[in-house]
Simulated scan of single mutants.
Amino acid sequence: MHALTITRGFCETERDTVARLYWDAFSGKLGPVMRPRARALAFFTSVLDPEFALTARDDTGTLLGVVGFKTASGALVGGSLRDMAQVYGWVGALWRASVLSLLERDTVTDTLLLDGIFVAPEARGRGAGTALLTAIKAEARDRGLSFVRLDVIDSNPRARALYEREGFVAGETEHIGPLRHIFGFRSATKMVCVVAA
Rank of each mutant, 00 (worst) to 15 (best):
H2M: 14
A3E: 14
L4D: 01
T5Y: 09
G9E: 14
T13A: 13
E14A: 04
E14I: 07
R15T: 09
R15Q: 12
T17K: 11
T17P: 05
V18A: 04
L21S: 01
L21G: 01
W23F: 12
F26I: 06
K29E: 15
P32E: 15
P32T: 15
A38G: 12
A38D: 10
R39D: 07
L41H: 03
F44G: 03
S46W: 03
V47N: 00
V47R: 01
V47Y: 01
P50A: 06
A56W: 02
D59I: 08
T60E: 12
T60W: 08
G61A: 10
G61T: 01
G65R: 02
V66W: 02
V67N: 02
K70I: 08
A72V: 08
A72K: 07
S73H: 11
S73G: 07
G79L: 02
R82V: 12
D83P: 06
D83W: 03
M84Q: 05
Q86P: 06
V91Y: 06
A97M: 09
A97T: 05
E104Y: 12
R105E: 09
D106C: 08
T111A: 06
L113R: 04
F118I: 10
V119I: 13
V119G: 04
P121C: 14
R124D: 03
G127R: 05
G127L: 04
T130P: 04
A131F: 05
T134R: 12
T134D: 13
A138Y: 03
E139G: 10
A140S: 04
D142M: 14
D142I: 11
D142L: 14
R143W: 11
R143N: 10
R149P: 00
L150D: 01
I153L: 11
N156C: 14
N156H: 15
A159N: 07
R160W: 13
A161Y: 09
L162G: 05
Y163L: 04
R165M: 13
E166K: 15
F168M: 15
G171I: 07
E172S: 14
E174Y: 12
E174L: 11
I176S: 10
P178Y: 11
H181R: 11
I182T: 11
R186M: 10
S187G: 12
A188Y: 03
K190S: 12
M191E: 06
V192W: 01
V194H: 15
A197M: 11
A197H: 13
A197R: 14
